[in-house]
């Protein structure tokens, strides 16, 4: 299945892209996606339509996921 991944801030700089489409084998969870992106160990927030996903939450075909570092405000 295909998902779109949008990285925020320093993740863009570290992983070299802002947004791209990925082909992932179903079933796939948010945690598995992070591992696939080599982001498993990083403190982060993974969201879908403005709501956070836990590492065991299943992804669906066509999902757009936003992955951001932890902020403390501007």
């Amino acid at each position: 299945m295909k998902v779109r991944v949008r990285l925020i801030g320093q993740f863009m700089e570290r992983f070299g892209f802002g947004e791209k489409e990925l082909e992932v084998p179903p079933p796939c969870t948010a945690g598995q996606l992070a591992e696939r992106l080599k982001m498993g160990r990083l403190d982060k927030v993974v969201t879908r339509r403005g709501l956070a996903l836990g590492p065991d939450d299943a992804l669906e075909d066509g999902d757009r996921l936003v992955i951001a570092p932890i902020f403390s405000g501007g």
């Binding site: 949008r6 925020i8 801030g9 320093q10 863009m12 700089e13 570290r14 969201t47 403005g50 936003v66 951001a68 570092p69 902020f71 405000g73 501007g74």
Partner: peptide, 20 residues
């Protein structure tokens, strides 16, 4: 290592827009 300073605090803008 984290490259936080590349965008600095304004990294928050894109996230706030994505999060509404």
């Amino acid at each position: 290592k984290s490259q936080w300073s590349v965008q600095g605090t304004n990294a928050v803008l894109a996230w706030c827009n994505e999060m509404a």
